[in-house]
Amino acid sequence: MAGTSARSTFMRRSGWFAKLEMPVLALLLALAALAQTAAEKPSLDTRRVGMRLACQCGCKDSVATCSMLECGFSKPAKERIARMQAVGMSDQQIIDAFVREYGPGIYLAPPSSAGWVVPYAAVAAGLLVVWWFIRKYRRPRPLPELGTIEIDDPALSKYKDQIEKDLADLE
């Protein structure tokens, strides 16, 4: 029974995963080639499934990202995934098979919506801060202590002439 409940949880999650992520993943094939760490590079399909399975070698990574060369768990697991894909099993079926064998703990959830929402929320918050900053400093304030000084003020016109003369020398 534990198996079925784990399975149904997965079905729900993989539903939006399949709907949302797959086409984008396919689009960004080239980009997805990143994040590969070990020298052996499994195919992208194997990788995609491997990302959803926790490696059991003690590294706390996924099967796809386990950085251990000749890893006792992730290497055969990757091969097994590839074989299962070769006979036409879907991602979900493969993951289910692993869950049946190793228990629900092996399933790694895909990024939750918080992963997406928070960075954009941060940008939005930043925009608000910028808006606030512009509003606050846009308001003309009298210059500190001396009040506004008109350049025509006789006491300052002396400066003005000096400034003009200095500026003529600038280059």
Binding site: L25, A35, M51, D61, S62, T65, A109, P110, S112, G115
Partner: peptide, 18 residues
């Protein structure tokens, strides 16, 4: 995510790129 939900969810390169 581990602190919040108990699951360690790692974000992969796709996430970063997108």
């Amino acid at each position: 995510s581990e602190a919040v939900s108990g699951d360690q969810i790692s974000l992969d390169a796709d996430w970063f790129n997108r």
